[in-house]
């Protein structure tokens, strides 16, 4: 006890908030790594620094970026969600199925997003009212949602060739040179990053995740907070699913297998703690960008697909290990 106090006083660089400190160390570190990788790849592959590749890469991380926002907020509140991949696929499948049954695509999308919100609320109920762990509840939902996807489609992708062009525009169009997907992504990132940093509503998420009991003893309805973060994560899955559907022009029941792990990895690389109480949207987005940059670099360099997971897993492990030691030194 005495020692930690003394060490904290001894090191002047420690005299900022943990949030700011993480910001400084983590986000800047990630940006440096991303830029370095960018530079190396520009030399290593002639196809890398082309407009087509940049556009494809940014489209790839943009929608995952929306998922990682929900995951990061949920992790900060102390929860976790393994069902994001399947729920995103389910959003796609349900909206596609409704559309094929004759429902207007916009209404079908709204219904599908509402359903995902309902799934989140359902998980939130099991976590906060019944008292089960996020891990188990979302594992069960992961399997159930995937099963539902297969049930609705008979296991085959639904081709949605008749989607009206103004709907497909969400996923495929652009304003000038900027794809709509990127614009949606930026709006979400800026809005949630701002809210998470500044609003009392999201401050309660940090309090709850940092020490749930202390939060309850500060008059915060911690169960309500956890219920809402769980629900929000699934709602964002619904939105991401719809964007994917517009982009692909189809609904794929097997979409997003293993996606939850990429999303959790990105959030953790970006500074979210599995113990709750810390994390930032900007960091998590940088995490997504890094992982997506690595994937596309490996593809461009003709590295076998099978190596990609090994490399991504190793990046996660190194990021968390480095962070662990930095935290330790900070006491």
């Amino acid at each position: 006890m005495d020692n930690t106090v003394n060490m904290a006083q001894a090191n002047p660089s420690d005299s900022t908030s943990p949030l700011k400190r993480l910001f400084r160390m983590r986000e800047t570190g990630l940006i440096v790594i991303i830029l370095a990788l960018f530079l190396i790849m520009s030399f290593a592959s002639p196809y890398f620094l082309t407009w087509a590749n940049m556009r494809a890469m940014s489209m790839a991380f943009a929608v995952d970026g929306i998922l990682v926002i929900g995951m990061t907020i949920l992790l900060i509140s102390g929860g976790i969600d393994l069902s994001v991949g399947s729920v995103t696929a389910l959003a796609m499948v349900i909206a596609g199925w409704l559309f094929l049954s004759g429902v207007d695509p916009w209404i079908a999308s709204a219904m599908s997003i509402a359903l995902c919100t309902g799934i989140g609320a359902f998980m939130g109920f099991f976590v906060t009212r019944v008292g089960l762990h996020h891990f188990i509840v979302s594992l069960a939902i992961m399997v159930i949602a995937r099963g539902a996807c297969l049930l609705f489609t008979g296991g085959r992708p639904l081709g949605l060739y008749t989607l009206p062009p103004e709907f497909k525009f969400i996923g495929q169009g652009s304003i000038g040179p900027v794809p709509i997907v990127i614009i949606i992504f930026l709006v979400f990132v800026i809005a949630f990053d701002f809210m998470l940093r500044r609003t009392t509503m999201f401050r309660k998420v940090f309090y709850t995740g940092s020490n749930e009991k202390a939060a309850a003893y500060s008059g915060i309805r911690t169960k309500k907070v956890i219920f809402l973060t769980t629900t929000l994560c699934s709602t964002l899955c619904g939105i991401a699913g719809i964007i994917y559907m517009a982009r692909f022009g189809s609904a794929q029941p097997t979409f997003g297998l293993g996606l939850e792990l990429t999303i959790i990895a990105a959030a953790v690389i970006g500074g979210a703690s599995l113990n709750g109480g810390s994390g930032s949207i900007l960091g998590a987005i940088l995490g997504v960008i890094l992982l997506s940059l690595v994937s596309s670099s490996l593809a461009l360099l003709d590295v076998s697909v099978y190596w990609q997971d090994i490399i991504r897993g190793s990046i996660l492990l190194s990021a968390v290990t480095i962070d662990h030691y930095l935290n330790k030194r900070r006491g």
Binding site: S17, L19, Y207, S210, N211, A214, A216, Y217, G277, S278
Partner: peptide
């Protein structure tokens, strides 16, 4: 245990 948030800033 439940009095303070140890890793959050003093002001928060």
């Amino acid at each position: 245990g439940d009095g303070v948030f140890l890793d959050l800033p003093i002001s928060a």
